Amino acid sequence: MYPKQNLTVNGQTKEIEADPEMPLLWALRDILDIKGPKFGCGIAACGACTVMIDGEAVRSCVQPVGDVTGAITTIEGISQGDELHAVQQAWVKHSVPQCGYCQSGQIMAAVALLEEIPDPTDEDISDAMTNLCRCGTYPKIRAAIKDAAQALGA
């Protein structure tokens, strides 16, 4: 039997019972049935599993759930009601996704970037957006981030 732990996910407190060493990704996907974060590599290299903890982009595939104390936000939690987040709107406008597998992680990394740096330079974007995209939509990702920054008032 594992210890019970409360997680704040997308503004709601959830109680889970899990091995404290279990990666947060699996707690989200397998215990809480939150499917936005994806498994890609399991070594924090690709970013498909990116979520935010207290506003910081975190690779959930290597984050032990027992070490999580802050508020977790997944792609399911960034919209305001029925309206897409400005980053999601920019992703649609610029037709960023192709296969789409990495997109929830890409979007979460972009949201975290814009929360930290509301008007990022190209260098800021390059430094923050280390998620991998097998389809190579990096120019569209950069354009969408700049568009979202403007929409958010940068």
Rank of each mutant, 00 (worst) to 15 (best):
A86P: 15
C46A: 02
I75H: 07
H94K: 00
E56W: 07
K93V: 11
G66I: 00
L32V: 12
V96A: 00
G100A: 03
S60Q: 05
Q88H: 13
I75Y: 08
R59L: 10
A27E: 02
F39N: 14
V51H: 09
L32K: 14
T50P: 04
T74E: 02
E83M: 11
Q80N: 15
A45P: 08
A44D: 08
A71K: 08
E83T: 07
K93Q: 13
D33V: 15
E56R: 11
I34R: 14
G70L: 01
G55D: 03
T50H: 01
E76N: 11
V87Y: 09
G105K: 01
E56N: 11
H94P: 03
E56L: 11
G81Q: 08
L25P: 06
G40S: 04
Q103N: 04
L28T: 03
I31C: 06
V51G: 10
Q63Y: 05
G36E: 05
S60W: 07
L28M: 09
K38H: 07
S95H: 11
Q80E: 15
A86K: 15
S60M: 08
Q98M: 09
L28R: 04
S104A: 08
C61V: 04
I78P: 07
D54F: 00
G105L: 04
I34S: 13
C41Q: 06
Q98R: 02
S95A: 14
L25E: 05
A86T: 13
S79K: 08
E83G: 05
P64T: 01
L84M: 13
Q89K: 14
A71I: 03
A86F: 15
L32E: 14
H94E: 00
V92M: 06
E56D: 08
P37G: 11
I75E: 05
D54Y: 00
Q89L: 07
A57N: 07
M52Q: 12
V68G: 05
I43Y: 10
I53W: 02
S104K: 00
G77T: 10
T73R: 15
V62S: 14
T69S: 12
A90M: 13
D82L: 15
V68C: 01
R29F: 14
L25T: 02
P97K: 02
G42D: 08
V51P: 12
R29P: 10
S95W: 13
G40E: 01
D30T: 07
K38R: 08
T69K: 03
I31L: 13
S95C: 11
T74Y: 05
G70N: 00
Q80A: 15
R29V: 14
I43L: 12
V51A: 07
Q63T: 12
T74C: 04
G40V: 03
V87R: 07
G81N: 06
D30C: 11
T74W: 02
L84I: 12
V58H: 02
R59H: 13
S79C: 10
A90D: 06
